[in-house]
Write a protein that binds this DNA or RNA. Sequence first.
RNA 1: GGCCUCUUAGUAUAACGGUUAGUACAUCGGGUUUUCAUCCCGGCAACGCGGGUUCGAUUCCCGCAGAGGUCACCA
Length: 479
Amino acid sequence: MKTRFAPSPTGYIHIGNVRSAIYPYLLARQNGGNFILRIEDTDQARYVEGATELIEDTLKWLGLEWDEGPIVGGPSEPYFQSERKAIYHEWANKLITMGRAYADDTSSEQIQSYRDECTAKKIPYLYRNFRPANPPEWHEGLPLRFKADPKVRHWHDEVMGDMTAGPEVQDDIILIKADGLPTYNFAHIVDDATMGVTHICRGVEYLSSTPNYLALYEALDLEIPKLISLPHILAPTGNKKLGKRDGAKSVTEYRDDGILPEALLNYLACLGWNDGTEEEIYSKNQLIQAFSTDRIQTSGARFDETKILWMNGQWIRKLIDEQGIDTFYPRTLGYWPESAAPYEDSYRQQVLAIIYDRLKTLSDLRTMTTYFFADPEIDLSMITGNKFLKKFAEEDLSAWLQLTAEKLENTPWNADALQDALNQLLTETGRKPAELFSLIRIALSYAPFSPALHLTLEVLGKDVSLARLRQTVTAIENA
RNA sequence: GGCCUCUUAGUAUAACGGUUAGUACAUCGGGUUUUCAUCCCGGCAACGCGGGUUCGAUUCCCGCAGAGGUCACCA
């Protein structure tokens, strides 16, 4: 088995089209075959500098390593279509020789008038109805057209099932453009054949041109690869397929947002596919095991930002619980607040250990951990406005904080002892946990939420904790 | 417009003619000594419409509607 991902280097890979890389990858791995990366750069006008690197970067990050293609090479080099011109011309000449292709010097104005004519008559426009009687000899600079053999065609699509198309959708498509480079329609057929591709995964938009491809396979006496049409991923609103115009984010943008590749791969693979069980969390290897084309959905699916966030949280917890903080920690680098920079890795690891089950993305670290690295700005309204605390007099509040500071001053600085001390403070002050702990928590962090109090204290350290408690005492007294 | 495809809760999906139509996210409510989160429990919420076939249709067939794709010297 050989599968391929064949993007054109016109920009980044977004979540709307990355599934056509994921599924062929899974298929190849599942069957011990090869996964090919082929760069379809025959449209010079749309070529974007650096796009190939972007594509490679995306694939690597997602863990979709390719067996043949740029960088790694392979038996069918080159893997850039722009470098395979001679191959396409060789195949084009085969078609010319057998009378199945002809050069076409019809002007674009003339072609447009054919089109207009059909529109006026309200009949379908088919170029083959205007096929020139005496086409010129083919030479570079002239487009080459396929001579269609329109007839009813039947084929099987692994996702869509048995398909039928009539002659009305088969036409004399352009094989080679005037610039000498092939069109997608011709290039991919030649490439798939010469590279030995056995399974083609691509978006459903190619379904309607499939009859033309079948004609080409037939003319060239090629075996038809298995065809796997992937339904679209839909834009957030409406039912249109997701594209860059809808603000489709690039795959790597999710990396920058702190989404794990494991989570994105898991989510994307399961968008429009499931194995029939109620399992939701799949590692790459589990996906390779479970994947099957016959369970790919036929209708489009919407990308749900909320669910990927949930899944990412699941993966953060899963990976840390399985591997431990030490192993996972390096993956968080780059997501900490700036103020964390002067601190040692071991301190950041302690913070990670008590905060990670609150993370939805790694970049949540940036906003959720600031008070571990810099004194928070005192905002007494968070205390006086707190639903548990607003009923108390300020003198009481500062007295309790003062008492807490004194108590903790003489407490061994470890989580268990701190927990005991905090519990004793509850009885000593006669307050409920919701009251006293909220007060202490806010004085320490001035954050909307934080990890359990005794853990926060332990990580923050004795000096910082006591200083912050006392600063708030002073602030209340001066208010 | 021609051709093609799709249609289960807000979202993603399960169901191979017989189920109180299941699950997850979201949402709402409750629980786990503060908050937020995790975790646990519970609630709300769906078969596009109309005909058939059948003892019985979400499931099979036909029609309709809606949505999407495609009709390039783009891929």
